[in-house]
Nucleic acid binder design. Structure first.
Lengths: 349, 349
DNA sequence: CTGTTAGCGCTTTCAC
DNA sequence: GTGAAAGCGCTAACAG
């Protein structure tokens, strides 16, 4: 019924081994033989059986990319960059790898499930993107999985995620969220702001914590009071930014600036300010983080910290494919760049 | 070295067959036996070998989701919805399916490559999202692949893509792009606009063509002149919208409205208008398509056509998993909803 | 450069 | 309800 490699071999009048060699292209085969085999493949419309091939070879061409929220361009952009380096020749069978993105939705269980599934498939590599969850139990479970994956020969790369101390084999490309957060708040302080609201992301997330730490470091360094009532936690979405801003305004109507956990949240903050009759930046300045494509189209354009998502993703992809040397020590910090635009200005008198 | 099912069997003092039955849960096994097996699995930290399992069972737990551009929230949102219905129990081994998204980047070759890779993996189902490429050769190749996949037992679902006539087994959930496009332009005509620029997507794409056809149908129905110089093609991105708008303005500075292929393009159009010193909607109205989350935050908020991406994706996912009846005839049309907001208004006098 | 020979680890009849 | 045995389709030594 289904065409197998043996059928191709019979038709091409060679042994199955030869067909395999032609298909994998990793072994010398006479040009004429190769041609004959390829013709047979074509004529029979043969498709390699992936599972059989992976079983025999004890490894597969699958490369998994884990993201927290695929609907968020932050992850979409990284995923696209990573995947672009994974497709194309370099794999085993037929010279193609299957780069696939898995959406954990930020759920620890799903993250672990995907990791298990990928482990089950004997994935060639796994790339985990974005902030990690800071629950100790979960972190330990993930680290254990990563270690096991690495032991089984799966390359593990973290992109935009801090290194996992217990998974020493994992290469990490970390974003300098702390530094970026600090720079951003210093920019605001430099403009004269002293009462800054901060909309943080979900608690128990490394990204959230690091950005907030940067913000606080800036306040501390410049002797600006850090009133805990000026910080609100929420999700990484627009709605959350909207509501948090209203809440911050309620707590302190004299705020002159709002720093958001990311650009999406900042957009929600802008909407809330507008709906409250406040002008940006005349009444209140707003800043985001990430510099997603739409941020420049906000009105006024958003001041933010640009993260080189595409470059970092591409690099992570190449490292995962073994096409680029890992950074020394297995860890590299990727810095953000402050983008000053129209949404921030001097505070009202 | 690696733990196999036989190891688990030995430890639990049962046969490999029994372990397999426990793991797949699709066969009666005594409760006490099951427990013993599960304990052994745990103690040995056993992970099923996916390829071996798929080889023996002649099917896998992989479900592929093809998208044109994962960095575009349009696809991200659909992919997230589809994937959310795929994870969870229902698969074979261990009751989990691996829903993975594959980014074709809009390239015909990569689309075909992914399809082949998925076929090679004996995927349980494949969901293709978004507009199709209208090249006859490519369309035929895709249709052939889809037919072959269906023959091999892979469920094929199209989500937001028109049905492929040559792949009759594929279930199609199509967006009514033509109707939405028409409604949008009629809204503008109703406001009094007569000189409308249209920024179309890339040529040779069903989505592009259908939206444009809707626009033209509206013009024709209301006796508005359809000057071909008022239509420009570009990519589905912001930059393209920016440049196209400048070009349209150059060709006809008296334009009173710009209809964009989608919201992202519309954002670029807004930026170009602003940079040209034109007010929205006082000087020029702007409309988009899709109603992505950021569209409501544009200033002014974008008039657009809302597509139920999440609902459609979830439904496609359920159909792919065999958890929902396909629509009668295998084809369902999903309608959009006109969202009138601040970016459109009456033309200047 | 090519063929022969063993499995890879699991599922699944078929018996008991 | 459980075990024994026969592959699933391919790859990878090892010869030649």
């Amino acid at each position: 019924m289904t065409v197998t490699l043996a059928d191709v071999a019979a038709r091409a009048q060679v042994s199955p081994a030869t067909v395999s060699r032609v298909l994998n292209g990793n072994y010398p085969v006479a040009a004429s033989t190769r041609e004959r085999v390829l013709r047979a493949v074509d004529e029979l419309d043969y498709v390699l059986n992936g599972p059989a091939s992976s079983l025999a070879a004890a490894t597969s061409d699958l490369v998994g990319i884990l993201v927290n929220d695929i609907a968020d361009p932050f992850f979409g952009i990284m995923a696209a960059a990573i995947q672009s380096e994974i497709g194309g020749p370099g794999g085993r069978a037929g010279g193609e790898r299957l780069g696939v993105v898995c959406n954990t939705g930020g759920s620890p269980e799903r993250e672990l499930t995907y990791l298990t599934l990928l482990q089950r498939q004997r994935a060639a590599a796994v790339v985990l993107t974005g902030g990690a969850i800071e629950d100790a139990t979960h972190a330990a479970a993930v680290s254990a999985k990563l270690r096991r994956l690495a032991e089984a020969g799966t390359r593990v790369v973290l992109c935009g995620r801090p290194p996992a101390p217990e998974a020493p084999d994992a290469i990490a490309l970390t974003f300098d969220n702390r530094g970026g957060g600090r720079e951003l708040t210093e920019h605001l302080i430099g403009l004269g702001h002293r009462r800054l609201g901060y909309i943080a992301g979900p608690e128990e997330r490394t990204t959230t914590r690091h950005r907030l730490e940067g913000h606080r470091a800036a306040l501390a360094a410049h002797g600006v009071e850090d009133d805990p009532r000026r910080t609100v936690h929420g999700r990484y979405d627009r709605r959350s930014g909207y509501e948090a801003t209203l809440e911050l305004l309620r707590r302190d109507p004299s705020l002159t600036a709002v720093v958001a956990a990311n650009d999406t949240v900042a957009l929600g903050a802008c909407a809330a300010l507008r709906d409250s009759g406040l002008r940006i930046p005349d009444d209140v300045s707003v800043a985001g983080f990430d510099d997603l494509p739409f941020s420049i189209d906000a009105v006024p354009a958003l001041t933010t910290v640009r993260l080189p998502l595409t470059e970092a993703g591409a690099r992570a992809g190449r490292i995962a494919m073994g096409r680029e040397e890992p950074p020394p020590g297995g860890i590299a910090t990727v810095r953000g760049e402050l983008m000053v635009r129209g949404s921030t200005g001097a505070p009202r008198a």
